[in-house]
Amino acid sequence: MKKIAVLTSGGDVPGMNPAVRAVTKAAIYYGMEVYGVYRGYEGLMNGELKKLELKDVGSIIHRGGTILGSARSEEFKTDAGQQKAIDVLKEYGIEGLVVIGGDGSYKGANALMQKGVKTIGLPGTIDNDIRGTEYTLGFSTAINTVIEAVDRIRDTATSHEYTFVIEVMGRDAGDIATWAGVATGAESIFIPEKSLSSEEMVNRLKQGYDRGKKHSIILVAEGVGTAQEFADYIKENTKYEPRVTVLGHIQRGGSPIAFDRILGAKLGTKAIELLKEGIAGKALGLEKNAVSIYDFDYVFEKKETTDIESLYNISKILSI
């Protein structure tokens, strides 16, 4: 294999740039040409490619987001759109494609694989909701961002004896809320995978205040409902005046922490080594500190929730 390309797709996450760097440097190390695809699958269809040299990735390991950019593309979901992308790859003589992104990005990579393009997927999403990996690129950095924000909010909650309801990302997965909740000592956590009733939340608040507790932190994954809805329920059913904070897109930004930089290095290098050996149609991840390799079909099955349920139960024990 002489020419490969790399693209980032879906939401940007801290860790994409270290992965792009690793793919580029590993490809050059093994004597390949590497092309960066700008603006994801949309850019691939439009021929927005540039040959990458070592200097292009020399100072990106510490940067958040993705230097390649990202874009949503409805057209790429069609056969015609996918054929446009394949035609561009053929025009450049590109034989392999590394796709960094989440579930939707993987489905695009698998569609191209089924049509003859050798693809490898790297998990890039802060939601940590991809099967076959214990950690996705960006998740660990996002957790640290949430923890820092919640710690700051708790300072104000303590000073003014407030209850804060904090909304974090996680439309279908509660990993961010659960991990951050345990790490910050949140009194209640609401996630899509586990049902905690609003009544139980209020009872916990009352029990805490009866013991002399003057403040509380409640974390809500966006897939369960809005922080404002939970705050309104508290206000209607207690004497407390809760405050609301929606952390939003700050969770995606920022410099990747060491773990995400190293994860990007491991996965990006392994992707090139697999393509060099003619192996494709695989999704990479990390399990027991080693790179895991699975077929795309395996990854598309629902992710197991055993780990998050265990951590969620720990949160209930420690939040008394």
Results as ranks from 00 to 15, higher is better:
Leu97Phe: 08
Ile130Arg: 00
Val117Glu: 00
Ile94Met: 03
Leu49Trp: 00
Glu91Pro: 10
Lys115Arg: 14
Thr133Ser: 05
Asn128Arg: 02
Glu134Ala: 05
Lys84Thr: 10
Gly36Pro: 02
Lys55Asp: 14
Gly108Cys: 03
Gly93Glu: 09
Gly132Ser: 04
Asn128Ser: 06
Leu44Gln: 02
Thr66Glu: 05
Ile86Glu: 08
Val98Thr: 08
Val117Gln: 01
Glu134Gln: 04
Ser59Lys: 10
Asn110Lys: 12
Gly108Asn: 01
Glu91Asn: 14
Gly101Glu: 11
Gln82Pro: 06
Thr66Leu: 03
Ser73Trp: 11
Val117Arg: 02
Thr66Lys: 01
Ile120Ser: 05
Ile94Leu: 01
Asn46Leu: 15
Glu42Val: 11
Leu68Gly: 12
Thr119Lys: 01
Met45Val: 10
Leu49Tyr: 00
Gly43Phe: 08
Leu44Arg: 06
Leu122Gln: 00
Val99Met: 00
Gly124Leu: 01
Val98Pro: 11
Glu95Arg: 05
His62Arg: 12
Arg63Thr: 13
Leu44Lys: 04
Thr125Ile: 10
Thr133Val: 03
Asp87His: 05
Ala71Gln: 03
Gly96Thr: 02
Arg72Gly: 07
Tyr41Phe: 15
Lys77Arg: 15
Gly81Cys: 05
Lys77Trp: 11
Ser59Gly: 07
Asp87Cys: 04
Gly65Glu: 02
Glu91Ile: 10
Gln114Lys: 14
Met113Ser: 14
Glu53Cys: 11
Phe76Gly: 06
Ile86Pro: 03
Thr66His: 02
Met113Gly: 13
Gln83Arg: 09
Leu89Gly: 02
Gln83Ile: 08
Leu122Val: 05
Gly43Ile: 06
Lys55Met: 14
Arg39Thr: 14
Gly69Asn: 03
Asn110Trp: 15
Ala109Ser: 05
Thr125His: 08
Glu74Leu: 15
Gly101Trp: 10
Gly101Phe: 06
Asn46Met: 14
Val99Lys: 00
Ile60Ala: 03
Ser59Ala: 13
Lys118Thr: 01
Ala71Thr: 06
Gly43Val: 09
